[in-house]
Simulated scan of single mutants.
Amino acid sequence: MKQLLPLTAAGLVLAACGGVPGNSVATVDGDPIKKADYEHWMTVVRKLSPDLKREQARDQVMNLLASLRWFDGEAERMDIALGDAEVTKAFSEQKRQSFPKDADYRTFLKTSGQTEADIRQRVRAALLATKIQERVVKGADKVPERAVADFYARNRARFSQPEKRDLRVVLTQKRGAAERARAALERGDSWKAVTKRYSIDDTSKASGGKLPAQAEGTLDAELDKAVFSARKGALAGPVKTQYGYYVFTVTAVVAPTQQTLAEARPAIRQTLVGERQQKALSTFMADFAKRWRARTQCAEDYRTSDCDNGPKPTATPTPRMQ
């Protein structure tokens, strides 16, 4: 609430018929949006975003004012109730979180040009938007077991882990240095000592040459081929790569794993629920914007893409007031 409270609702982008009265900028379902309200919010926008061009500020204010009416109308259509007590509780919680000191809140109102009624109106709209969204996605969490099983069958690789190998390596620039490093290891010198003396790879050198959990296909092609054909514990190399010459040993092999359907079920269900909720929201949002835009008429100098008699909406939404 340090800025204008957001009109949440997962981006419910908002938009009546008949003429617009002379003292109004628009009507939604025939209900006028007064010029006085428009000018008030234009003052707020100018205070918060003084660099905005007039047309951009106009579009944000018209979007806000139309949105407030759209949420009210949609909530009524869906028979969604919101009591004053809910609004007061949410307002108080947000105020306490954003402004522990009342003096800071008062300063915010003064500098932003808003009144407490403005903030409560935004809180109310946000609560309505949330309730609308909850109603829209209700039931989307019921995923048939067959859908879970089908998803698992199509995406088994997503629930598996490939074999991984822990390595110890020495990387040198010249083949001769790699051969000397290997000879030192064969004599019994420690990996820590050998990597410190010969390795040009600072990362593995800092850990005595350790290179853990390498999956096939993640290393340089020549090294990858050598690593995954090597026996555990055997010293191998030098192997020429684009980075230099490697001497290595495989210290551990972690076998590949495959989650069962039972193990993968929670993650799959979560994915499918998310997909179903998003589909429900997308379908609703398209219908919502179309219906309410058709009910919104704007005066000539105030026409935006939220108005039925305004420019055609584009894929890029009007910037929101922040």
Rank of each mutant, 00 (worst) to 15 (best):
R122T: 11
T115W: 05
R154A: 15
A66R: 09
R96K: 07
E86Q: 08
A125I: 03
Y105G: 02
N63G: 15
K131G: 07
G139C: 07
R124S: 02
A103E: 14
K101T: 10
T88F: 11
A149R: 11
A103H: 08
Q121S: 12
Q97K: 13
T88G: 12
G83I: 07
V61A: 00
S112C: 08
F99P: 03
M78E: 15
F151R: 07
T130V: 14
V136T: 10
A66Y: 04
P100V: 00
Q97C: 10
Q114E: 11
G83F: 08
D79R: 10
K138Y: 15
G113C: 03
E116N: 09
D84R: 12
R106Q: 14
M78W: 11
I132V: 13
A85E: 15
T130Q: 15
F108T: 06
R77M: 12
R146E: 08
D104C: 00
Q133D: 15
D79M: 05
D72H: 00
Q121C: 09
F108A: 12
D59A: 14
K131V: 04
A103N: 12
A117I: 13
T115C: 05
R96Y: 06
A129N: 07
L127Y: 03
I80P: 02
R122S: 10
K110M: 06
A66V: 12
A57L: 02
N63K: 13
R69W: 03
R120C: 03
Q56L: 14
R96V: 08
T130Y: 15
K142N: 11
E134W: 15
R124P: 00
M62L: 06
Q94H: 13
S67C: 10
F91V: 00
Q114A: 11
S112R: 05
Q121F: 02
V143W: 01
E74G: 05
D59Q: 10
T130W: 15
T130D: 15
T111K: 06
D141C: 01
V136I: 15
E134G: 10
K138I: 13
D150G: 08
Q60F: 03
M62T: 04
A66E: 11
E74V: 02
F99G: 04
P144N: 05
R120V: 01
P144Y: 06
R124N: 09
S98D: 12
I80D: 01
D59R: 07
L127F: 06
I80N: 03
A140H: 00
K142D: 14
K142H: 15
R69N: 05
V123F: 01
V143I: 14
A125F: 02
R69C: 04
K131A: 09
E145G: 12
F151Y: 11
E74Q: 08
D141Q: 06
P144R: 06
Q56N: 14
E93R: 12
T111F: 09
D79P: 05
E76K: 11
E93T: 09
V136A: 11
V148T: 08
S112A: 10
Y152D: 01
Q60P: 00
V137W: 10
S67A: 15
K142P: 07
K95T: 08
K95H: 01
